[in-house]
């Protein structure tokens, strides 16, 4: 077995090369630039829009994980944002905990609820699962409409009747102004993306890929498919709960109208268009779902046309670009890199 050490060292070099790629370095530089200069360049209005886009990008990353890696169609993710928001508002009003700890509580609570309502995913897949999750999203929509979101009142629901008594949840200490909250959300979003990326590139991600490829093949490889499906649901629900917490703190209040079942469909569509097989696609999806309508408004086009535009985008993605915009961008980058390296070698 003399070849083993050579192979091991080759693999170590290969891993280091993977970590410090041009792409990763460029991404780090871009994120630092966004952190420092983003609010200055964007201005007040677009800073708020991009902040919400980043929050929805976290939920989109969860959808991408479920669909792109496990093959599960979940049409209830916006409801889970609502659950995370509800828990954040309720715990935030009821305790003196720092906002970061409230976010942790929201993540754990939403993770548990997500696993509970996602149990059908253990038995269902494809269209059946899509319909079940959509119906659950409808059920959450009704519940949110009936209970409303906590606004500083008493009782389990934490509702204060009357506008005067309503108390918005204060933003975290590190993000009281819009530019600071932009940066705060950017950092938390990066952390959530890292959580998902670490899962994707390690043991759970490989197990999920095997389950997507073939349930029988996964079992034959010794993978506990039920455990790993539950794990995926927990991770996705927890990160989506954090997104809900960030959204709740953004304005301090939440409105049930923001958590309609149709919003979940919209978000899923943007993930398909953005690219369900990469986190870049999720980031694009976050902007498409929250940034595109105001962008259309800014161009003098009715923002409600988003459904038509995303419908056309989905047709285009499904028929010609299954990897989404992210896949097309990656293809373009590969072509440019190849052209550049060929040019240098001449």
């Amino acid at each position: 077995m003399t070849a083993v050490p050579q192979r091991s060292s080759r693999i170590a070099v290969w891993r280091a090369e993977k970590l410090f790629t041009v792409r990763n370095v460029a991404l780090a530089v871009a994120l630092i630039a966004l952190f420092t200069a983003g609010p200055l360049v964007l201005g007040a209005y677009w800073t708020r829009i991009v902040t919400v886009s980043m929050i929805f990008a976290i939920a989109a990353a969860g959808i991408a994980l479920l669909y792109g890696r496990l093959g599960l169609v979940s049409l209830g993710q916006v409801s889970l944002i609502g659950v995370g928001g509800w828990i954040t508002l309720r715990v935030g009003h009821a305790t003196e905990l720092p906002f970061e700890l409230v976010l942790v509580v929201a993540a754990i609570g939403t993770g548990l609820i997500g696993v509970l309502v996602g149990l059908p995913a253990l038995r269902l897949s494809g269209l059946n699962l899509a319909i079940v999750t959509l119906m659950l999203a409808g059920a959450f929509e009704v519940v949110f409409n009936v209970t409303g979101f906590p606004n500083g009142g008493d009782g389990f629901l934490g509702r204060a009747q009357g506008g005067v008594l309503q108390q918005p949840l204060p933003r975290p200490v590190l993000g009281t102004t819009d530019p600071d909250y932009f940066r705060y959300v950017l950092v938390v979003s990066i952390l959530m993306f890292l959580v998902i990326a670490l899962h994707l590139s390690n043991r759970p991600g490989r197990a999920w890929a095997a389950i997507r490829q073939s349930e029988a093949g996964a079992l034959a490889a010794g993978i506990g498919t039920v455990r790993y499906r539950l794990w995926a649901l927990a991770v996705v629900s927890a990160t989506t709960g954090v997104a809900g917490g960030l959204l709740a703190a953004n304005a301090g209040l939440l409105d049930p109208i923001s958590f309609k079942a149709s919003q979940s469909i919209l978000l899923f569509a943007t993930v398909l268009i953005g690219g369900a097989f990469s986190l870049l696609g999720a980031a694009i999806a976050g902007f498409l779902s929250q940034g595109l309508p105001p962008l259309l408004d800014a161009w003098g086009v009715n923002g409600n046309l988003i459904f038509v535009i995303l419908g056309l985008g989905m047709i285009q993605a499904i028929t010609t670009a299954p990897q989404g915009i992210a896949g097309q961008l990656k293809g373009l980058a590969t072509r440019l890199r190849n052209r550049f390296t060929q040019g240098r070698s001449r």
Partner: peptide
């Protein structure tokens, strides 16, 4: 076991395909 239809996962590297089996057994 192997299956009539090969089960190599297209999105994972060859190394990860093999490691997948090892880390669960």
């Amino acid at each position: 076991r192997t299956f009539q239809q090969e089960q190599v996962i297209h999105t994972l590297s060859a190394w990860d395909n093999i490691r997948l089996s090892s880390e669960h057994t």
